[in-house]
């Protein structure tokens, strides 16, 4: 199950890929964008698992920054405007590719993405350590204060917080506080 973003300037190619991916198993959500700014915005809002990106698009961010903006398990497939040799790598598709070739390559990535997610699946619950960090965040402590209290580095606190946010899908401190209250990690009296 993957969310796919098609980043392609050519209207015809974009529509073609939308139609192809619309009938491919494993694609849960599909978005398409053509303008570089819209692409960057969509990456931020949509957080795709697979990005199909035309290699000629000049994005307003560097390649490294693009990688940083995608989530850690996201994959990029490049769309190439020229024909590719028979033994081309799996992360490149050409606008000249046949339907079979395209389906084969895209399905390959969808499968790989899925198996990578399955391994992670059972760790989606918060670990006791993460719960402890969450408790302190909800109580209103800063990263630095939490680090001192728990005898760990501020860097470790930040990395725990990233994982908490990813697992729970909650970004803001007040959102995390609400979660902690609902789940009995902290009590109403604690924050009053």
């Amino acid at each position: 199950m993957a969310k796919v973003l098609i980043a392609e300037t050519s209207y015809l190619v974009r529509k073609g890929l939308v139609s192809l991916l619309g009938q491919t198993d494993g694609v849960t959500e599909l978005k398409a964008a053509g303008h570089p700014d819209t692409i960057i915005l969509t990456i931020k809002e949509f957080s795709p698992d697979i990005l199909l990106l035309n290699s000629t698009i000049q994005l307003p961010v560097s390649h490294d920054e693009l990688i940083a903006r995608l989530h850690e398990r996201a994959r990029i497939i490049y769309i190439i405007n020229t024909p590719l040799p028979e033994d081309s790598p799996a992360h490149q598709i050409s606008v000249f590719d046949t339907k079979n070739k395209l389906t084969e390559k895209i399905s390959h990535h969808l499968k790989q993405y899925e198996s990578a997610s399955e391994e992670k699946e059972d760790t989606e619950d918060l670990t006791p350590r993460e719960k402890l960090i969450l408790k302190h965040v909800a109580l209103g402590f800063t990263n630095k204060e939490i680090a001192t209290k728990l005898f760990i580095s501020a860097h470790t606190v930040i990395s725990h917080r990233k994982n908490i946010t990813r697992k729970l899908d909650i970004k803001t401190v007040s959102g995390l506080t609400v979660y902690a209250l609902i789940n009995g990690i902290i009590k109403m009296e604690d924050i009053q």
């Binding site: 899908d169 909650i170 959102g175 979660y179």
Partner: peptide, 15 residues
């Protein structure tokens, strides 16, 4: 939007 997305996710996933 951030807080609104949080609100949505809490309602959808945890309540």
């Amino acid at each position: 939007e951030e807080k609104l997305v949080d609100l949505r996710n809490i309602l959808l996933k945890y309540l």
